[in-house]
Design a protein around this nucleic acid. Sequence first.
DNA 1: ATTGACACTCACGTCGCGTGATACGCTAGG
DNA 2: CCTAGCGTATCACGCGACGTGAGTGTCAAT
Lengths: 254, 254
Amino acid sequence: MEYTIKKLAQLSGVSIRTLHWYDEVGLLKPAYCGTNGYRYYQEEQLLLLQQILFFREIGLSLKEIIQVITQDDFDKIKTLQAHKQVLENSLNKKLVLIKTIDKTLLHLQGKYIIKNEELYHGFDSERQEEYEKYLVHGQGSASEALIFESKKRTAKWGKDEWDPVKNEGDAIHKALAKCIDKGLTPESNEVQEIMKRHCQMINRFYEVSKDVYVGLSQLYVEHPDFKKFFDVYHKDMIPFIGKAMRFYADKYLK
Amino acid sequence: MEYTIKKLAQLSGVSIRTLHWYDEVGLLKPAYCGTNGYRYYQEEQLLLLQQILFFREIGLSLKEIIQVITQDDFDKIKTLQAHKQVLENSLNKKLVLIKTIDKTLLHLQGKYIIKNEELYHGFDSERQEEYEKYLVHGQGSASEALIFESKKRTAKWGKDEWDPVKNEGDAIHKALAKCIDKGLTPESNEVQEIMKRHCQMINRFYEVSKDVYVGLSQLYVEHPDFKKFFDVYHKDMIPFIGKAMRFYADKYLK
DNA sequence: ATTGACACTCACGTCGCGTGATACGCTAGG
DNA sequence: CCTAGCGTATCACGCGACGTGAGTGTCAAT
């Protein structure tokens, strides 16, 4: 069976230009060329092309493919195993990147919340400067620089969106303060019921997974802004809500 | 604090050329330029650069970065979330690719084993042709085309390497045949002890995980070459060893 | 003979720089 | 003051794997 370049392209799902290119670099030469210069391919080339596309898909460069298709099975196995390693490494790197993004999102969102809480709790602008100082004197990591950068811009949410959240948050924090005074543990059913409400509220900002919720609890504990914010409700609020959140995350989130 | 271009490059770990480029595309302009044309940067640019590098690392293009750095926190959050999706997708794709490679390796290695078994069991060259036909008339997937391609080349292993493997394999298969005759089940302790030896033998070819071992059991059941090979030992060998392997994989491998 | 689909060969554009070539500026030592 | 030796500037080509034309030739059918 003979294929013109277009037929081969359609059969294999690549462009004609790609076949031209593979011819030029010596990766896939046509079976023969007509006197008019047309390229004609046959079964053998189709099979070879399929191999090439397989190797291309797993991420080998054309240079590597040129080498690999001339190898025998034994060497192909070696090459594939080696490349599998490469893929696994880049997979791990990507996992780390995603975690990094999560962390940055957490910071950004935490800051975003703080900023908007300020709007309604009347923290003065000194707080902003203090916050920025804290960040600048931290590790100076990229994500922190990112947080720092954002100067005072007007929030996208108006009062209508923020008020219900603020009220619910206020109610939750007050309820928690009462629980502390009553001597309840962070793990008690009553407290965990409140945490459910808390988790639902946070869910209005972003999707809450176990990791994210635990991360947020750390944010609460570590960030002085949150400390000051929670101290208003109860002096033991921070460790209490931290424990309650971690317990809730462990038990109900995944 | 003022930085010359070299100092900024060293501080941030990028090349001077990169800074030139970022200036050219408008991503990071110097704080000001001297009358001599020299670029001078300040703290603000350092922080901005750190942001840029953060976004670059997570895989945003420069065009996207140019847009994102002018956004406020709210939009950055959106962008990050969107890009996190992108990363997760490519992560999944990579997972699939790795599995594909595993499958291909399995086929290649299976074929490799068959070919070399043939060397010592005296299968004639007709078998090879038959095998190729089987592959060609199969699904014609890329990995199968890959298997097909490899024509008769001399194996890299010599007699010295193959003989012990062949002997151990032979002993295992004979032992299994006896177990079948004795009426033992594939799950029985005695059989599973033999499977342990089998698994160790396979381990000499490549690392055996649960998936790989189960895959190999399928290879045994599906490939006519293996069928003929095992039929020599016992007519019920194929289903028997298949069950035994899957049971072993379930119980002892991960 | 004409038409329209298909083929060919240049050749430039993409993205994010690396790597020169060539020329000018700055500072220090002789 | 001259020069050596850096630092800096601009200009320009190169990579990899094609996409996307432009301009021209060829084939099959009407």
